[in-house]
Nucleic acid binder design. Structure first.
Lengths: 205, 205
DNA sequence: CAGGTAGGCGTACTGTGTACACTTACCAAG
DNA sequence: CTTGGTAAGTGTACACAGTACGCCTACCTG
């Protein structure tokens, strides 16, 4: 009987993602999203409980772009690396969403399924019980931390330029390390750190 | 000639920290801090550029509680662990500040000095060049990620209860891992993960 | 064609950060 | 002790946020 819905949550999520990509985290407002959907701000509330749910939709939309199925071939290290890379790539495609991703981490169904897959691989690798718990925690910790190191810094003040301004007399190690890191590039830095973590995990077997 | 200042930045930082500890991240408003200092909101602007600087002061205040001097005895692993624990403990004492800490990470003088100290220890351990850069990045990544896993979740919806609601049929590994993790406790989980990371770092030598 | 259901909107309220102009307290000089 | 200048502190007001409330309206079913 009633009037049919003209939107669905996915459309809203897409619009909100476009807004945040274009105008940054602070630009994600109810009014801006409604505007992009050619609706009044209040119309949005028919589809979304509040701003918090809107943000949750955006996060889920971003994480949906990651493949959370473990590849069937390769060593367990390769498979974990693949899974880690998937999340990293998905989030990296939308740097402005990073701050949101972090807050929603523990409630996100997508990340839950991802964790389940990772645990499966770790189990096949021979990890059980507390050791497996610590390994997952370790990988998740590195993933989240690394994503931030990559993106949260560059959103404002530009992290690299900030490091370039380090006086090499006050911070001798740090300034030379910053140069090393810049030569490496973000991808290799992430991969290198992950390889270290995985060696540590493997040592526990 | 002029009227003397009645406050300094440290007093403001202390007041702001008290406000955020008592009323959570959203409670940290210019008005609330001014109120606690028995001043008008606008008076605060004589001491602080804007809200962003206020938040920065809070972060620095929290990080100041961490000892950033490396202990002189023990293995390099022990010394790095000590340094990691210091930051973790400082931030853990003020869970509501966690979201701010993350954003300010790359500009924080305290964290810069901390990184410098860690790099010194890593250098003594025999790490140089890109490998040292990756190791620092790896440790920083784990530190930041782990702090979040501990605190950002529990701020809302209570992370453990969320995990308890996992259907063990849909998430068999995850639900059993959640049980393992709960038995472990946050501290041991952090320490265990760090030990894994350090083993990985050591393997690179 | 009629009527009810639910979609969409207009208005308005509270609370935020903060610009601007004002008042006031202090200190040095006469 | 007066007096004036400098900067501290305040009051008011605005733009913009999220969102509660109630109205109008488009659609589908009978």
């Amino acid at each position: 009987m009633p009037r049919p819905r003209s939107l669905d949550k996915d459309t809203i999520a897409t619009a909100a993602l476009a807004v945040i990509d274009a105008h940054g985290p602070a630009g994600l407002t109810m009014r801006a999203v409604a505007n992009r959907l050619a609706m009044s701000p209040m119309a949005l509330y028919r589809y979304v409980e509040d701003r918090y749910e809107l943000e949750t939709l955006v996060v889920e939309k971003v994480l949906a772009e990651a493949d959370i199925e473990a590849p069937s071939h390769g060593s367990w290290q390769d498979r974990v690396t693949y899974l880690m890379e998937q999340v990293r790539a998905a989030v990296s495609a939308h740097p402005a969403v990073v701050p949101l991703t972090l807050t929603r981490r523990h409630t996100s169904p997508a990340l839950r399924r991802w964790s389940e897959t990772v645990l499966g691989v770790l189990t096949e690798a021979g990890l059980e019980g507390p050791r497996r718990a610590v390994a997952l925690r370790c990988l998740l910790g590195y993933l989240i931390g690394a994503i931030q190191l990559d993106h949260l810094g560059s959103l404002e003040g530009h992290g690299t330029s900030a490091l370039a301004g380090l006086s090499s007399s006050e911070f001798p190690y740090l300034s030379s390390t910053a140069r090393d890191a810049r030569r490496l590039g973000a991808e290799e830095e992430f991969a290198g750190g992950l390889a270290m973590v995985l060696r540590g995990v493997a040592d526990g077997l």
